[in-house]
Design a protein around this nucleic acid. Structure first.
Lengths: 133, 133
DNA sequence: CGGCTGTCTTGACGTCCGTCGAATCAGACA
DNA sequence: TGTCTGATTCGACGGACGTCAAGACAGCCG
């Protein structure tokens, strides 16, 4: 339905101020990723071996009903983050790397040499970082 | 209040599936950027010449009341994306480049050589791309 | 001290979002 | 053709979100 979150272009958010029109187009993409379920769905789709993944593989991974997963997938679709294709009985979802890349570019901070090192990982100390040994 | 969106760590979303706990911590950061006003605020703060910017410079840039801007700034603060510091009469906000960098890394797609080129910019053709001449 | 300016908090209101159950649509298969 | 399975849409409900007006708090200055 011609939504297609279309960011203005490339300049990192830290370089120059994002104009209102660009923000209006970019924000929905971030909003789509602003839900834990959708973030996981996006990751499962984007990291699929064959480049695509069946809905029937996505649904059982959550404690949610089919319609709810379908709703989240639609949100990702309307945000322009994924593509869907029906093939026979099943529907396959595929990521749009170029779009992810654009969002990444927007958030990318140049070299960041004199950082304060205060990453999200260790804000103070109470955060569990059971990843990254 | 000890919120501090703390992503698990580094592996791009396209590499391996984001675990539920990590998604629960990362999603709020994206959600915070999922509003046009906050995205602009984030950009204005992150692109500030001196590294920080006064609330008195942020508020007049929008057609919104002071409390509303303050509310959005609080959201960004609680998401761990910015820091606030009161200095005399004014309050200054400063970005957290390391956090932005982590979010960027999560969205970064490796090299992406065989792309279909379908970036958000030109999904089909109906999108206005009055940026990027 | 008293007033002033700037910012944040509180309370309220309307809207949007996440979730579900039931119904509907799309293919496959007998 | 009929039926079964998989996925989406529809309708509804509770909760969260964006916004504002009014009030409270912090620091300056006369």
């Amino acid at each position: 339905m011609s939504n297609q979150a279309a960011p203005d272009c490339c300049p990192p958010l830290t370089e120059r101020r994002v104009p209102a029109e660009a923000a209006a187009v970019l924000a929905p993409a971030f909003k789509a990723l602003g839900d834990p379920v959708r973030l996981q769905l996006m990751s499962m789709i984007a990291s699929a071996e064959s480049g695509e993944i069946c809905v029937c593989d996505l649904t059982p991974a959550f404690d949610l009903t089919g319609p709810t997963i379908s709703h989240h997938l639609r949100t990702l679709r309307e945000a322009g983050l994924v593509d869907a294709e029906r093939r026979g009985t099943w529907v396959y979802y595929r990521a749009r790397p170029a779009v992810l890349g654009q969002l990444a570019a927007l958030l990318t901070v140049a070299p960041a040499p004199h950082e304060d090192g205060t990453s999200l990982l260790r804000p103070t100390q109470s955060v569990d970082r059971r990843q990254c040994p």
